[in-house]
Simulated assay, not measured.
Amino acid sequence: MRALRLTAWGEAPASAEVERPVPHGTEVLVRVEAAGLCRSDLHVIDGAPGALPYRLPFTLGHEVAGQVTALGPAADGVSAGDRVVLYGPWGCGSCARCAAGADNYCDRRNTLAWHGAGLGRDGGMAEYVLVPSAGQLVPIGDLPADQAAPLSDAGLTSYHAVAGLRHALGEDTTAVVIGVGGLGHLAVQALRATTASRVLAVDVREDALALADRSGADFSTLMRPDTARVLRARSGGVGADAVFDFVGAPQTLELATGVLRSGGELAVVGSGGGSLTVSKPGVLPAGFRLSLPFWGTRHELAAVVALARSGALHVETERFPLSAAAEAIDRLRGGRVRGRTVLVPD
């Protein structure tokens, strides 16, 4: 089968012919219908030797949807023909977090030579992908594969961030989403679907604001020197109850803390190189709480799929054949992708 393989750190992945996997034990073989491409893949590709524990080579792709085609003799919970999405973070499988379906917070994460499908283990940018067990699969029914695949990271990460702050987002509250890209536009939708909060969106691109509006934001604005004042005014003058920063750059963190009300919640999802200096007393809002959400749980992925099947979540996608992966990577790297990039086997 054809697969997109990372063979050297800092170099472009290469298309290669590899053997189709055969499932053993509890393993499940999935025929790939769609695989998402995201900036996490770029971070992996660009990694310096030794920066990540992964052993080369391996097949990229951690956002994967497809159809079960074969099962190992000890596999159960799925049947051949089932359409599924992969739960991407694979932990040790034995700690309390993994047992509870929270591989994203595996207690042994720092000791593993992988972090999941396409992250040290062979992923879904191929014709087939081998999954350790049916526990890493969530059924999708008739949901289109190009909608389902991005849910396993972009949808799940956004939903997990929102779920963590949902307690603060009741009636007459304000949530601010900074960065309305592949994750941010799904966060806007998750907020509208699962909270009573008004949703304000910020970006530096006009087309991203249009995407925020299509996703259901109550108000969207470009990031300018007076944006914090504008957002505070839209929140009734008190500031936001919760801010979701999907960029994480110095400028966005400054905006996030500038618009947050006392006792508010800040979730930093983006990895844009920004930092916060915590001091008391200091310039940060009194009583504010900070979270650094990462990916999500298997149970949350099932909830995300349910929202998508109900029509409450829709992923803006750009599709490319797997053979055009180099072009897709180039467009993503250049910031020329609207929403989420999806690769489809030729």
Rank of each mutant, 00 (worst) to 15 (best):
M1N: 08
R2W: 14
R2F: 13
A3S: 09
L4C: 08
A8M: 03
W9I: 03
G10W: 08
P13H: 08
A16Y: 05
A16L: 10
E17K: 11
P21I: 03
V22W: 00
V22C: 03
P23T: 02
H24K: 10
G25H: 09
G25S: 11
T26I: 03
V28A: 02
E33I: 06
E33D: 14
I45S: 02
A48K: 14
A48P: 01
A51V: 06
A51G: 10
Y54Q: 02
Y54P: 02
P57T: 00
T59R: 04
L60N: 05
G61W: 01
G61Y: 04
E63Q: 13
G66T: 06
Q67T: 15
T69Y: 03
A70H: 00
A70E: 00
A70W: 04
A75L: 02
A75P: 01
A75D: 00
S79V: 09
V84Y: 08
P89H: 13
P89I: 11
W90Y: 11
G91I: 10
G91E: 11
G91L: 11
G93F: 07
C95L: 12
A96P: 03
A96V: 13
D103Q: 12
Y105H: 14
C106N: 11
D107Q: 13
R109C: 08
L112W: 07
G118N: 03
L119Q: 15
G120S: 02
D122W: 06
G123F: 12
E127I: 06
V129R: 05
V129D: 00
L130I: 04
S133T: 04
S133Y: 00
L137G: 09
V138A: 15
I140R: 09
A145S: 15
Q147N: 13
P150T: 15
S152A: 15
A154I: 14
A154E: 12
S158A: 15
Y159N: 14
G164C: 04
L169P: 02
G170K: 01
A175K: 00
V176P: 05
V177S: 07
L183W: 11
G184H: 07
H185V: 14
R192I: 05
L200E: 00
V202S: 07
V204M: 09
L209C: 08
L211S: 14
R214K: 12
R214N: 13
G216I: 10
A217N: 06
T221N: 04
D226L: 05
T227Y: 07
R229C: 04
V230N: 06
S235W: 00
G237W: 07
F244C: 08
A249I: 09
A249V: 08
Q251F: 13
T252H: 12
L253G: 06
L253C: 07
V259S: 06
S262G: 08
A267W: 00
G270M: 10
S271D: 09
S271A: 15
G274R: 06
S279L: 04
V283C: 07
L284N: 02
R289T: 03
G296C: 13
R298V: 14
R298N: 11
V304Y: 00
A308P: 14
E316F: 09
P321A: 12
L322I: 12
L322Y: 10
A324R: 15
A325K: 01
A326R: 10
I329P: 02
L332R: 07
R336F: 05
R338L: 14
R340T: 12
T341N: 05
P345E: 13
D346A: 12
